[in-house]
Design a protein around this nucleic acid. Structure first.
Lengths: 250, 250
DNA sequence: ATCATTGATTTCTCTAGAGAAGTCCCGCAC
DNA sequence: GTGCGGGACTTCTCTAGAGAAATCAATGAT
């Protein structure tokens, strides 16, 4: 709308941040290297501590650096630790024993309103898509190589899965869908919505996310024969660990 | 690794941020509403200006609020403005005239090394996947409803597309692939990698991103018959505007 | 009515200083 | 060698203050 941005002189903290960023992106400072700290910047540029902090804060919430209290600020290059195909997501991982779930809140029934009050991310989808008054919720946290990388919540129509834990046991991945198949509701089609956003505080702790790390949020709806939705799956993934991969034909 | 987090008392700025966040997430403060500013927080809690700023900064880089200099700090709920299926991405949009590209750097040939020096996000892919010494680059920026929402760079093997602009004219979406088809290299398979990260400074300006907005980065490789890669497409999307949608069968 | 100016309000940048809390390493006791 | 203090260093939290820069509404001139 307005005219081209007149280039006011950048503030000091930003110029310092730019210099540091250049050093990171050019490779002069590598992953895990230590950045000049508050004191170093104060001396080098003759600035106040708050200003030095501000410069470092820029890099920190760009996700290029991580502060470690009492120690220093370190370069953190964005390097995904593992790649997952979105569909065959964990099968090989599970087979190799690399992936585990380290917490599994057993499912129980909630009314759609209860879910909404719990402020599930999926709340709107669950009611609308699943078209059920009562849903069955199953929460998990997945870890790979000891690091938590994914939170998941699955919602099933309660009338479909009466019996809960017995019907949908913890038999690893695929187990749930296999059971749904035995009940005559095998999923045959999936629709996924992928978003990126900043994590909320709870997610920051559960996924152990350093500052400046966004999360990938995937909502997957599974449909059985006839177009009936049988599951809504909300996944929150550490974006530093995950790369989603999709393959499809023209 | 270490034992469970002892719950020290949260610092003041964080408690204030938590209170404000609750008001936002509970709906007491809606999209576009004005948050209490620095002065208001100073008076209300009896804290220094820097501390009040720190509280607001938490919400700002969580992406829940946007500061407007000289005016105030406003709630910004994460509400995608438009949804795209990843494949039929823009076809309807273009037909309705809602989408445009407002900059189109005509392609020219670069060596793979040149591309690497330009530090394209896709640099590594381009050399490896395309298996070409020289590539043809095409850059675009897409806007929807006057807002820039997507940066894109396409890489083609140079020996495939000699003649550049004539061979791959700006005929809107599909045009490029149609032309590739006429040349006998119609893409029949796509593979996409989806990442989320924080934007780099250039992207912040080009996409006009408010603080705290992550970007979705999609790398799409198009394969022709026989498994030959004919295009690498690097897309950077404003995550506040985009929701990617993928549909596939079991 | 339209346009320019002024003034109050608000965020932004920066200084100076101080104590708390966590990390890291060296040296000492065992 | 092993473990335990202690001290140096670093980031974190917070205070107090001041000028710059942008916004917004009201006021006044044309």
């Amino acid at each position: 709308m307005t005219e081209s941005p007149v280039h006011h002189e950048s503030p000091i903290y930003r110029r310092i941040a730019d210099r540091l960023r250049d050093q990171i992106l050019s490779g002069a400072l590598g992953d895990g290297d230590r950045l000049p700290g508050e004191n170093a910047l104060m001396n080098e540029y003759g600035i106040a501590r708050a200003t030095a902090r501000q410069a470092l804060a820029v890099l920190i919430n760009e996700g290029l650096a991580v502060p470690k209290r009492g120690s220093g600020v370190y370069v953190r290059l964005f390097r995904p630790i593992r790649r997952h195909g979105s569909r065959r997501l964990s099968r090989e991982q599970w087979a190799q024993g690399l992936a585990i779930w380290d917490s599994d809140t057993r499912g129980r029934s909630y009314t759609v309103d209860e879910v909404r009050i719990l402020r599930e991310t999926a709340s709107e989808h669950v009611g609308r898509v699943l078209g059920a008054e009562e849903v069955w919720v199953r929460r998990r946290r997945y870890s790979v190589d000891g690091r938590p990388v994914q939170l998941a919540a699955s919602f099933f129509p309660a009338d479909l899965v009466e019996g809960t834990a017995v019907v949908l046991p913890d038999t690893g991945p695929g187990g749930v869908y296999a059971r749904l198949g035995e009940l005559g509701h095998a999923p045959v089609h999936f629709s996924e919505e992928v978003r990126a956003r900043m994590p909320l505080p709870g997610e920051t702790e559960l996924l152990n996310l350093p500052a400046g790390t966004p999360v990938i949020s995937v909502t997957r709806v599974a449909f059985a024969e006839g177009g009936v939705a049988v599951e809504v799956n909300e996944m929150t993934l550490d974006a530093a660990s995950y790369v989603l991969q999709y393959d499809f034909d023209a």
